[in-house]
């Protein structure tokens, strides 16, 4: 029983971080119908920033979000202005975004490899290898639970950022505009939303979230340039599972699959963890192609 709780806790902590990573991806799709295959490449690029900030300047990775997010926001806005505005309104926009971001992902991967080589990196702040130990409470005599500090802080930060995002979308003027554009782009235009500005901001927000995710990744998961493919496959599985563009779906999908993969790892072995995501993806495509919270077939 204690083991089950332990595994579930680890899964939830993992799911929290996945939720943050997937949130950015789903935001870009929701508002602009951009399927960003470079999202994980952006995360890895950000992880390098945090990693070197820690190694060279001693800045805590968790703290590094303070500058990684703004940097990535500006980067995202620039990418949007330079690349996506050109293809806006093109007939096969969805397909174009996939191929374009595919190319961007390859470019980022190559540049990172060129600059930092392909070796594994992982920042090691003090808390990365420490745990909170919980005993007593409801647990049987002698049993204890480990809560890894690094993952705990990461999940905490993810929750804070996701709540902030939610509040921003729910209550701010720009948030209204973003939601309006997500639901009906033409209608947003008609009521006077400058959809191009909103799109640029949303894409910036999406990459800023990738930035925050990268800061967390820098000490949670070993990374190297090529790794982003594995991550983007997992994140996309999450996003399709939740229903493309649905923020709620992405978060719930991340938490559920975080726990599920955590049990798979515990029962079958660590190499099968990612399989949970792919199998879940195919299962959901078979049963409900539009995803858990999607309304129509994603086009």
């Amino acid at each position: 029983m204690t083991n089950v709780i332990q595994v579930a806790i680890l899964g939830l902590l993992l799911g929290g971080v996945y939720a943050l990573m997937a949130a950015g991806l789903t935001l870009a799709f929701g508002v602009m119908r951009i399927v960003n295959l470079a999202h994980a490449a952006f995360i890895i690029a950000s992880a390098y920033i945090s990693f070197f900030a820690f190694e060279k300047l001693g800045i805590d990775p968790l703290l590094s979000v303070v500058f990684v997010m703004p940097i990535m926001f500006l980067f995202g806005v620039a990418v949007y202005q330079v690349l996506f505005r050109r293809i806006e309104g093109s007939k096969r926009f969805g397909e174009m975004t996939v191929l374009l971001t595919f190319g961007i992902a390859i470019m980022v991967e190559g540049l990172l490899g060129f600059a930092f080589t392909g070796i594994y990196r992982k920042a090691a702040p003090g808390y990365a290898n420490e745990s909170f130990i919980v005993d007593g409470l409801f647990l049987p005599q002698g049993d204890i639970l480990f809560i890894p500090k690094g993952q705990f802080y990461a999940s905490l930060l993810s929750i804070v950022l996701l709540v902030a995002l939610w509040a921003f979308l729910r209550y701010s003027q720009t948030g209204y505009a973003i939601r309006a554009t997500t639901q009906n782009r033409a209608a947003a235009e008609i009521v006077g939303v400058n959809v191009r500005r909103v799109s640029a901001i949303s894409f910036g927000l999406s990459t800023a979230l990738a930035g925050a995710s990268g800061a967390l990744m820098s000490y949670l998961f070993p990374f190297f340039p090529f790794r982003h493919w594995q991550w983007v496959a997992v994140l996309l599985a999450l996003v399709v599972l939740g229903g493309m563009g649905s923020m709620k779906g992405a978060v719930i999908g991340a938490l559920v699959l975080g726990v599920a993969s955590s049990f798979v790892v515990d029962q079958i072995g660590p190499t099968w963890g990612p399989m949970t995501f792919y199998l879940a993806l195919f299962l959901i495509l078979l049963i409900r192609p539009q995803g858990l919270f999607g309304k129509e077939a994603p086009a």
């Binding site: 399927v35 599985a237 399709v240 495509l285 192609p289 994603p298 086009a299």
Partner: peptide, 9 residues
């Protein structure tokens, strides 16, 4: 599925 979801799968 079609479009992006297909590519992802």
């Amino acid at each position: 599925t079609r479009g992006p979801a297909f590519i992802i799968s």
